[in-house]
């Protein structure tokens, strides 16, 4: 087995007296779709924020793509190849869909103030490439027609898709999705599933938090279950589903 893309070991995170994460270790392999589930308040989003640099872990080791990132800022991790979406959509509301995706290309482009001021050839080429690439991505996620619409005027489903396009624009190795199917109907969820499978087929590793168990079970190669900030199970969806600890976490156990 080759070296994992993301390796967390012994990650802990405290908020005041509250331990949001305790000794969480997990490995995400290259090219897999990795699901993260758990009851409300289990620490899924906290772990997600640690992975994407929004929170600094209190303790533990964080390795991504063969390098250690102990206290990295979000933009450093984005540079390294982790892109994310948000549970409550956080688009750049007053920019067009196209500009949103182009802003997502920030880490893969170089142009500075001088290039912009003097309209250097390299800058103009880069800008044209960015525009083309952004248009392509909008078509890829299926919202090409809305490229000049302000993000805030897009429908909910389109906003979810735009967030994915914006994340893909940074050419990530790991795409982290926080509840991508939240609020979607069955058809939209099915479309999302197809899209995610296609993204994986393009060689991007996907990590997602999801409440829709059907989606998780049908999509993920491996699933980890969090409860009270600890990882209580990990494995193929079928194994996890029959794991007594998981059933206890979701339904409550007899001895409680």
């Amino acid at each position: 087995m080759s070296e994992p893309l993301l390796a967390l070991s012994g990650i802990g995170k405290q908020f005041g007296g509250l331990a949001a994460l305790t000794d969480v270790s997990l490995h995400i392999r290259r090219g897999e779709i990795y699901g993260l589930i758990g009851p409300n308040g289990a620490g899924k989003t906290t772990l997600f924020n640690v992975v994407t640099g929004l929170y600094q872990p209190g303790c533990g080791e964080f390795h991504f793509d063969g390098r250690s990132y102990q206290t990295a800022k979000p933009h450093v991790l984005a540079q390294a190849g982790i892109a994310r979406t948000f549970q409550n959509i956080r688009l750049f509301a007053n920019l067009t869909a196209l500009e949103n995706v182009m802003a997502g290309r920030h880490v893969r482009t170089r142009a500075g103030v001088f290039g912009a001021l003097f309209g250097l050839k390299s800058t103009r080429c880069e800008e044209r490439d960015s525009t083309l690439r952004a248009r392509e991505l909008l078509r890829y996620v299926g919202i090409k027609k809305s490229s000049q619409t302000l993000a805030k005027h897009l429908s909910y489903g389109e906003q979810r898709r735009l967030e994915i396009a914006r994340a893909l624009a940074s050419e990530p190795l790991l795409l982290a999705l926080d509840e991508p199917a939240a609020g979607m109907n069955a058809t939209e969820t099915e479309d999302l599933k197809v899209l995610l499978q296609d993204i994986r087929a393009n060689g991007i590793t996907v990590m997602l938090i999801e409440h829709d168990v059907k989606l998780i079970m049908g999509l993920c190669d491996r699933v980890a279950v969090l409860d009270y900030g600890r990882k209580i199970a990990e494995g193929a969806p079928d194994e996890v589903r029959s794991n007594p600890a998981v059933i206890a976490a979701y339904l409550g156990s007899d001895d409680e």
Binding site: T52, G53, L54, K73, P74, H75, A78, Q79, A83, R84, F86, R90, L91, F92, A93, N94, L95, A103, G104, H106, V107, R166, A167, S170
Partner: peptide
């Protein structure tokens, strides 16, 4: 528009 999203996009 959104500082947190901006930094997550590598800005």
């Amino acid at each position: 528009e959104d500082e947190i999203a901006a930094s997550a996009m590598g800005i």
